[in-house]
Amino acid sequence: MKYDYIVVGHGLAGAILSYTLRKRGYQVLVVDEPRPSSASRVAAGLLNPIAGKRFAKSWMADAFIPAADAFYAELEAHFGQELFVHKPIYKIFSTIEEQNTWMANSASGGWNDFILATHTTSTHQPTIDDPYGGIMIGRGGSLLVEDMLRLLTAELLAQGLLLPERFQMDQLQLTAQGVKYKEQEAGHLVFCEGFQVVQNPYFKWLPVKPTKGEVLEVQTENFNPECIYNKAVYVVPVGAGRFLVGATYDWRQPDEQPSAEGRQELAARFSQITSQHFRIIKHRAGIRPAVRDRKPLVGVHPKYPQLSVFNGMGSKAVQMAPYLAQQFADALGGGAEVMPDIRISRYLSLYYDYIKQQNTQL
């Protein structure tokens, strides 16, 4: 059978793109090696419209979040199961300077869709340490990532559309009609490999830095599960008195092994949010594909039009991927191009440097 697309990788980005293509009627084959420590499976699936210590609206939040809401609602209807948990996010001020930064930013307007309340003093919740107050953010929540990937994987397997194996680059052939992988043919192949793109001979020139993130699952009593909390780390309720606490960012030692340093850092930061006793149940680590300019990497290879990449969303894949998958599906189908900010063509100089280096080595 000849497919329209082969998608390599079935983490968040690959799963959302392959589902989007299948919903449009395309024949899609997914190649993915199941890895329980993949970044997508370790992630808490957080969607947060407000970014970082500067208290700025996340890039393109006004476009990304409605698209994400619609996509996850469609998936929930498709599978008959809740997959996205809508919860307000209480972003706690660490200092009076942070409070002042927010008050200055909020004066500019444009926040009404996302801010439910601003607290300039403590909310006096008995288990929360918030002496400077914080902001209550709406339109956020968390995706049940493992549940979503499990359901989509089972569907692909049932339809014979998944090869559960590591992609073998030496089995890929580029043809006049597209690509051939082992015995499977397709018109186009999309790499959604996450950080492993740094080993991809066609796209290793892209400026991806593997970045390790560690997450704790903790058990604690009498801690309010009605919110997600954010103060240096996120705290996401997952039921029965359990919470995910994360994440660290480590580009110095990007492996998938939980570290004593990561455990200590996360436990210390959680203790800055609450004085409640807690017990660590799990400690996991994964590797994200971080990009130099913090924008995704989407587009067709500059030399081989049969190949493209959909990658580089890092910790924002839950928020970005639904919108970008729709846009990329339009582009692959011959519609409008993807937006300039995410095109891999912005790094063409790196590609030419890479080719020059390869030729020099030959």
Rank of each mutant, 00 (worst) to 15 (best):
L83V: 11
F84Q: 09
H86K: 11
K87C: 07
K87D: 01
P88A: 03
Y90S: 00
K91I: 02
I92P: 00
I96C: 02
I96V: 04
I96Q: 04
E98M: 01
E98H: 06
E98Y: 02
T101P: 04
W102N: 08
W102L: 14
A104H: 07
N105Q: 13
S106R: 10
S106T: 00
G109P: 02
G110Y: 06
W111M: 10
W111A: 14
N112A: 15
D113K: 14
D113R: 14
F114A: 13
L116R: 13
L116Q: 11
A117S: 15
T118E: 09
H119R: 08
H119V: 02
T120F: 03
T120H: 02
T123W: 01
T123R: 12
T123S: 06
P126V: 13
I128V: 11
D130M: 04
Y132R: 02
Y132L: 01
G134Y: 00
G134L: 01
G134Q: 00
M136G: 04
M136Q: 11
I137D: 06
I137R: 10
I137V: 14
G138N: 05
R139Q: 14
R139W: 05
S142F: 08
L144P: 04
V145L: 12
V145D: 06
E146F: 05
D147N: 11
D147I: 07
L149P: 14
R150D: 15
L151W: 03
T153E: 13
T153Q: 09
E155C: 07
E155P: 12
L156G: 02
A158Y: 01
Q159K: 15
G160V: 08
L162P: 02
E165M: 15
E165T: 15
E165K: 15
E165Q: 14
R166G: 11
R166K: 15
F167S: 13
Q168I: 07
D170N: 15
Q171A: 15
Q173I: 03
L174E: 06
L174M: 08
T175V: 07
A176V: 05
A176Y: 05
V179I: 14
K180E: 11
Y181K: 06
Y181V: 10
Y181P: 09
K182R: 13
K182Y: 09
K182N: 08
E183H: 14
E185W: 04
E185L: 08
E185N: 02
E185D: 03
E185S: 11
E185F: 04
A186C: 01
A186Y: 04
G187P: 04
H188E: 05
L189S: 03
L189V: 04
L189P: 00
F191D: 06
C192G: 11
E193W: 08
F195W: 10
F195I: 03
Q196E: 09
V197H: 12
V197I: 14
V198M: 06
V198F: 05
V198S: 08
